[in-house]
Amino acid sequence: MNFEQLFLTVLTYGCLFSVMTVCLNLQYARGGMINFGTVAYFAAGAYAYAIFTQEPPKGLDQYLFGFDAPWWIGFIAAGVASLLFAIITGWPTLRLRGEYLALTTFAFAEVLHSFLLNERRIGNGSVGLSNVDRPDFSAIGLSENYGFMLSAVLLLILTSLLCRRILASPYGRAVDAVRDDEVAAEAVGKDVHRLRFEIFVISAVPIGFAGALYAMITTLVSPDLFTAEVTFFVWIALVLGGEHTIKGVILGTLALVTFEEVVRSLHFETVRAAEIAASVEYMMTGLIFVMILRWQPFTRFAKKGATP
């Protein structure tokens, strides 16, 4: 693998996953909500994009809907799908706290995954939808790789600006207040439930867009791509970034993606060697994760505790 290719891959996927980490950061570090089902919103976006842009089913296809719409309609649909899924899952669950919220969101993500896998009418079941439509960058004189890289960077910049804007406003300070002390925030007239719900829903939208972009890049959506591993990956990146600032989490994600891509770009003589490298990568990721949590005092978090 040449250097340019590696650089492009890292930047594309790094920015794509950074969109998720930035949103998760908004939910967790600012909203105090542990969302262990991040992948579900990502998958909702990707599937919505694929379903809207896919041609109507024919031959062996088992999916019911394909609207053959242009890419930008699919892109908007992705955001809407993620938004709707956040409303459906957020409405009943957000009164839960701490580990209880983590478990419910995790369960919701697994339910969605199971539906995508078993219900062939959504997206061909385990086969998935292939040949996903992608925008044509040649019209503005860009090669595909650079086009997607720039789109990912752009999406990340917009997401970060949105988060910064939200958090710098009085609204953001209200969110911080809810996280720090719910009772006090409620006492001065902040609608705690509404604030949490709004943050949860708003931060799901860019994740849906990221899902659409991911579908364009891979040109394939299938349940295999959207497992709980994505969620854990994003969480590890978030912890790696440490400081709970937007810059921090983006750097954390880029570092993790670089690490993975470098390991993947190495050549191995045998399948067994590649297998061992993959598991060592896995172990290293976990080890880094544990070590960071061990030596970075999240005092702010510790005092919150977990109450249902």
């Binding site: 542990i34 969480w235 949590l293 978090f301 510790a302 505790g305 977990a306």
Partner: peptide
């Protein structure tokens, strides 16, 4: 003493 959530994530 960092709380159950950090232990869970660890």
């Amino acid at each position: 003493n960092l709380g159950p959530a950090v232990l869970l994530i660890s």
